[in-house]
Amino acid sequence: MENRLMMFLVIGTEAIFFLSLIFAFVYFAFEPGYDNHTWQLLNIKSTGIFSVLLFASSFTFWRAEKSYKKGEVKRLKRWLFATIGLGTVFLFGQGREYWSLLHEDLTISKNNFGTSFYTLTGFHGLHVFIGLVILAIVLKLAAAGDFDEPDSSVINTVGIYWHFVDVVWLVVFTVVYVLPGVLL
């Protein structure tokens, strides 16, 4: 129980961190320097697909937790592996998007859209990356037999974090990719 409460508190404080970044993004969206033209460079379709994959990783993790509770360690490992795979693909997608945007000459110092876009999505990517590292450790521990008995709160705790990262992306995706298209 202590672990879970700790993780709830951590994601609470992380949520406010992301709110601040989103606040900055929206703040600039109202400023004249915000370049709507550059927003058009974003590829909502391909990013949408990668987003779906990230959301799918929440599902696979949920399956992993279920398997763990039932004591099916083999399945746990499989679902964990799938989760890591999906997360990695998402990061790959983000890298791909950054690459193409840099080719379009949108850098972090180009204008304040670039500034707030890279910062917001970059910090989310960083959280995904940290999540992947944690998941890899969990997978390693599972392989070492640490989770043979379903009495640990570790998997559940890591799950809180991983679902949180997905929820943050849901909000970021809506604010950065969807809403400007609807409202502008």
Binding site: S109, N111, N112, T115, T119
Partner: peptide, 19 residues
């Protein structure tokens, strides 16, 4: 060289104060 608070680059000095 991001432009959060750099006025010439389109940043805002009030944003810093708010945060």
């Amino acid at each position: 060289q991001a432009h959060f608070f750099d006025i010439a680059g389109g940043g805002s000095s009030l944003l810093w104060q708010h945060l």
